[in-house]
Amino acid sequence: MAILSVSGLAISFGSNHVLKSVNFELNETEVLGVIGPNGAGKTVMLNILTGLLKPTAGSIVYMGADITGKSLYDRGRMGFGRTFQIPRPFEKLTAYENVMVGGIFGDGLSEKAAGSKASEILELIGLYPKAGVFAGKLGLLDRKRLEIGVALASNPKILLFDEVAGGLTESEVVEILNIVLKLKADGVSFIWIEHVLKTMLEGTDRVMCLAQGRDVVCGLPAEVLASKEVSEVYLGADEDE
């Protein structure tokens, strides 16, 4: 069953028609990978899905309800969580406090419950030894992990990842893949933007390619990556550079 269905999603910045018509469905506990050349509008799409940007056309239906006009705050409360392409944890808070914010505000937990959940999550994302370190002082991998941890603490139903694997080594990516698999088993659905194609093959159930403002092709990862559409898109992008 679809937890999220997006139809005719479009957005323009002046004469820059970044998204023209994007259509897809995300099923429950599915990991949907999103690929596409630089500047295709993948981050913009995520920003629209979380309510950071308003689309110029199209609709977003989440668990049967149209949420196109809902605010960031409302969507957070409804179960949306996300990470940013450039990680933006709360720098003036320690790793532990970061996760606490997710638990207290995102999941409405009491301070005590949020505290024990925060410890659990820090353990899961491998940041327990650095619980007391200010997020602004963490390295890239730790910041990425922490962003996942904060989103997790808010008890999301749907997690949106914007290039979490970018800049990480292969073994670090494997750690993140393991977290995703565990969460998927717990009932979380994912939209996962990524450039690293190997991650897409291993970590996703389906892959969608975004180019020229449209969902060019969508299907099983191996098929999509081998498709004529995707090779055209990436060849086209290469010629531009």
């Binding site: 969580g81 940013f84 709360f90 003036k92 808070l93 505000f105 409405g108």
Partner: peptide
Amino acid sequence: MSIRATASNRMGAELLGVN
């Protein structure tokens, strides 16, 4: 803590349900 979170990343805090 919620005040510092808001100052660090307002959008992130908002998405987590901080008003």
